[in-house]
Computed example of a mutant assay.
Amino acid sequence: MTVLVTGAAGFIGYHTCQRLLARGEKVVGVDNLNPYYDVALKELRLSHLARHPGFTYAKVDIADRQAMAEVAAADPGVTAYINLAAQAGVRHSLSAPHDYTHSNVEGLLVMLELARHSGKCRHFVYASSSSVYGANTKLPFSVEDRVDSPVSLYAATKRAGELMSHSYSHLFRIPTTGLRFFTVYGPWGRPDMAAYLFAKAILAGEPIRVFNNGDMRRDFTFIDDIVSGVVGVLDHPPVDNGTTPPCNLYNIGNNKSEQLMDFIGLIEASLGKKAIYQFEPMQAGDVKETAADISAIQRDVGFAPTTPISVGVPAFIDWFKQYHGL
Rank of each mutant, 00 (worst) to 15 (best):
S129N: 08
M111N: 01
V227A: 11
P308A: 10
K42T: 09
L249M: 15
V147S: 03
F303D: 06
Y168M: 05
Q283A: 01
V125I: 12
P305D: 07
T307M: 15
S128N: 10
S152D: 13
D148L: 08
I62S: 01
Q18H: 05
S118A: 13
R173E: 13
G161P: 01
V105C: 12
H123P: 10
G89W: 02
V301Q: 12
A86L: 05
K321Y: 02
V143A: 11
M216A: 04
I264G: 11
S295H: 15
P97M: 01
D293Y: 14
R91W: 06
D148F: 08
K200C: 05
I317R: 00
A22F: 07
Q66P: 01
A80G: 04
G7F: 01
M164N: 00
R19Y: 11
A58K: 00
F279I: 06
N241M: 14
Q322A: 15
S149E: 15
R146M: 03
P314L: 11
N83V: 07
G24C: 11
M111I: 06
G265R: 04
V5R: 03
E144F: 09
V27A: 05
P175L: 14
G13W: 00
Y100L: 03
V227H: 11
H15S: 07
S270L: 12
P308I: 08
F222I: 07
I223E: 08
I208G: 00
H52Y: 13
K59F: 03
E144K: 12
V227Q: 12
L234M: 10
L94D: 00
L33A: 05
L203S: 12
A40N: 11
I12L: 11
L203K: 13
S103E: 10
A296G: 10
L139K: 08
R116T: 05
K288T: 09
P238K: 14
H324I: 00
Y126G: 00
S169K: 12
G186K: 04
L163Y: 10
R19C: 05
L109Y: 14
K256A: 11
P207Q: 09
L94G: 04
F181K: 07
V233R: 10
N83S: 05
V147Q: 03
S228N: 15
T79E: 05
G29K: 02
P187R: 13
P281R: 09
P207N: 07
V5W: 03
S131Q: 09
N83A: 06
I12G: 06
S93G: 08
P238N: 14
G107W: 01
R122M: 04
Q66A: 02
F263Q: 05
A269V: 04
G229E: 10
G77A: 14
